[in-house]
């Protein structure tokens, strides 16, 4: 095995890990604030990617503005999902499974709508730094991928500070941990839940606009991203923003190493088996009990 190959696989694992982590981050944000496992997190990313793509293609906006548009679109979809799907389900006493299933229905809807209105094409989208790559010992990493990693780290740290330092973040946590108690001290619990979904949608939007230039936009991508993100979030611990990124990195790197050292055909078998083993060996998640239970 050459050094180039090893480094290339590390870079690929790292990039994919942050991609999975960003999706997982959105899942963990929403879980943290509402105790809902959102099966349409990848579709938030899809919507954001499409919005950004249209903004860049049709309106000819600069990349950063187009990306911002995508993130706003993600937040709006998050808001709509909370209003149209989550709230009515909970009002009628839907169980956890019902909540999972309405978001799954939402995911089907987004994917079907994307095929219907956006088309069956895969679309490539320009990223930061165009298509330029950096050379690392003859291995290549897209400049955009470096941006993705940097922004992901910024987002995680910002989320951490948001929950720990700001009154709003604290209110969101309080509303989630003890809704009745929070209500008695004057926290508007429903609004906190809406905000949580908007925040989750925005994080999904960040993921969408950052991921799309790397993997192209396609109507089927939402659920695939969700599955990877779900894995990342659960392995890392649902309650901790860092957890999702850690879980994502673990998954990305295991996949890359499985390809290099074992066989690309069995990549998913290896990654998934390892995942099951980790869960059995560490029943509290990678970041320990507090990490998993969260809040």
């Amino acid at each position: 095995m050459t050094t180039t190959l090893f480094i290339q696989s590390l870079l690929a694992g790292l990039t994919n890990g942050f991609v999975y982590g960003l999706i997982g981050l959105g899942i963990s944000v929403i879980f943290r604030g509402t105790r809902v496992v959102n099966a349409m997190q990848g579709d938030f990313a899809l919507v954001a990617g499409i919005a950004a793509c249209l903004a860049l293609d049709w309106l000819g906006l600069p990349i950063a503005v187009g990306f911002l548009g995508g993130i706003i679109a993600g937040a709006l979809v998050g808001w709509a999902v909370e209003l149209l799907l989550i709230r009515p389900t909970q009002a009628r006493g839907g169980s956890e499974d019902s909540l999972l299933l309405v978001t799954l229905g939402g995911a089907f809807a987004v994917s079907a709508a994307a095929l219907l209105y956006f088309g069956r094409d895969s679309r490539s989208m320009p990223g930061f730094g165009g298509n330029r790559s950096l050379d690392v010992f003859d291995a290549a990493i897209r400049v955009h991928a470096v941006w993705l990693i940097a922004i992901a780290i910024v987002v995680v740290v910002a989320l951490r500070l948001f929950y720990q330092r700001t009154p709003l973040g604290q209110s969101i946590l309080a509303a989630s941990i003890d809704p009745e108690g929070a209500a008695t001290i004057g926290i508007n619990v429903p609004r906190m839940r809406t905000l949580t979904f908007m925040l989750g949608g925005a994080v999904g939007g960040v993921a969408g606009v950052l991921v799309s230039p790397l993997i192209t936009i396609h109507y089927e991508m939402g659920l695939l991203l969700t599955l990877k993100g779900f894995t990342a979030a659960i392995v890392g611990g649902l309650g901790n923003p860092f957890g999702a990124i850690m879980g994502g990195l673990l998954l990305g790197l295991v996949e890359a190493m499985a390809i290099v050292f074992v066989s690309s055909g069995y990549k998913d078998v290896i990654a998934m088996s390892l995942l099951i083993l980790i869960m059995i060996a560490m029943p509290n998640g990678l970041l320990g009990r507090r990490g998993r239970v969260g809040g």
């Binding site: 009628r92 839907g94 019902s98 309405v102 089907f108």
Partner: peptide, 20 residues
């Protein structure tokens, strides 16, 4: 027509919401 998967998703969501 081609809109049917979208409709199915809609029916699914409505069914889950109204029949917990």
């Amino acid at each position: 027509g081609d809109v049917h998967p979208l409709l199915f998703a809609g029916v699914l969501v409505v069914a889950v919401i109204f029949l917990p």
